[in-house]
């Protein structure tokens, strides 16, 4: 491996408001290796979708990148002119959104949407592009693709539409796919199908995935590593099995315990008191401190993402000096 495919360093996103800038992402850093699936999990408002939008250059004003660097295969992409960024979207970064109808044009046959995308990004002729489009529809599991290719989006069910969107995101063979809540709008039984299509296809074509979701179960099924976000910051990052089985950050610990599961029948669910702070009222120091059961003096200062083996947690509990100082006082 030669360095990360995507590298995000100290990303800061602000929204200009009348009362001054609102910091929506603050010091977000992570890497995605080629072919790796990174899950990004968090509650609504944690900044996970915003991170995805910042990477693909689709932040809506008044939101803007106010600091940090985003590099794709070693080249910075956060300051590219719009025309170049447009070329990167699609060709190098494929995108899958929650609602398939936002990605599909209802007035065009799905075959035309696919062939247009292939023609725009690959140097092939029209006939070849159509053949590839049929092959992609087959790959995402659409039955009799040579007939369905001339259908319109409304003629497909929700799950089938999301399969078409996956084909659309992958057909230019991008190195990275950003999937923002790709299964949230679907029924449970269809959800499992879409996850397995996404997982198998990206693996077969060697594409890395940034999988954004609020569903820890989906992450556990799909991702290699996971980044847990809280109040616009990364609270914890690590290999997915380790984070699920043995979370380090008190927020992740609370989150995991709050999820009801099929395996365990409990009388009560563990609960984290309170709610995530609004962007306008993020406390100084650790953003989780007011809800944290293990808060101590050091938490008045903002913890950096500390390396613990090959994992990371933004929590003073993992700073030996801080804990020792707390014991002494």
């Amino acid at each position: 491996m030669t360095g990360p495919l995507l590298s995000v360093r100290d990303l800061r996103v602000e929204f200009a408001t009348r009362k001054g800038p609102l910091v929506a992402l603050d010091g977000v850093s992570f890497d995605i290796a080629p072919g790796e699936v990174l899950g990004v999990v968090g509650e609504s408002g944690a900044g996970k979708s915003l991170t995805g939008l910042a990477i693909i250059g689709l932040l809506d004003p008044p939101g803007r990148i106010a600091g940090g660097e985003i590099s794709l295969a070693g080249k910075r992409i956060d300051s590219l002119p719009p025309a170049q960024m447009r070329d990167i979207r699609g060709r190098r970064i494929g995108i899958i959104f929650q609602d398939p109808m936002t990605s599909l044009n209802p007035l065009l046959r799905i075959g035309d949407q696919l062939t247009e995308t292939i023609l725009a990004h690959k140097s092939v002729g029209r006939r070849e592009a159509r053949e590839r489009a049929i092959a992609w529809l087959g790959e995402v599991g659409i039955p009799s693709p040579e007939k369905r290719i001339d259908g319109y989006p409304h003629e497909f069910s929700g799950g089938m539409r999301q399969r078409v969107v996956i084909a659309l995101a992958l057909c230019a063979e991008p190195a990275l796919v950003i999937a923002d809540e790709p299964t949230t709008a679907l029924d449970v039984s269809v959800q499992a199908q879409i996850i397995s299509v996404l997982k198998n296809l990206t693996r077969r074509h060697g594409a890395a995935v940034m999988l954004i979701t609020h569903d820890m179960g989906v992450i556990a099924e799909t991702a290699d590593r996971v980044a847990v976000m809280y109040a616009g910051r990364i609270a914890e990052v690590g290999e997915v099995h380790e984070v699920v089985r043995d979370p380090l950050h008190p927020y992740t610990q609370g989150l995991m315990a709050a999820i009801p599961t099929l395996e365990v029948s409990a009388r009560r669910l563990a609960q984290i008191p309170g709610a995530m702070p609004r962007l306008s009222a993020i406390p100084p120091g650790c953003a989780f401190a007011p809800r944290c059961p293990r808060v101590f003096a050091r938490c008045a200062e903002r913890p950096p993402l500390m390396a613990i083996g090959d994992r990371g947690a933004a929590c003073w509990l993992y700073d030996r000096a801080a804990v020792a100082a707390d014991v002494r006082t």
Binding site: A192, V218, E221, R245
Partner: peptide, 9 residues
Amino acid sequence: LDAVPDLMM
């Protein structure tokens, strides 16, 4: 039941 993601792996 089978479709529910296996959170605890």
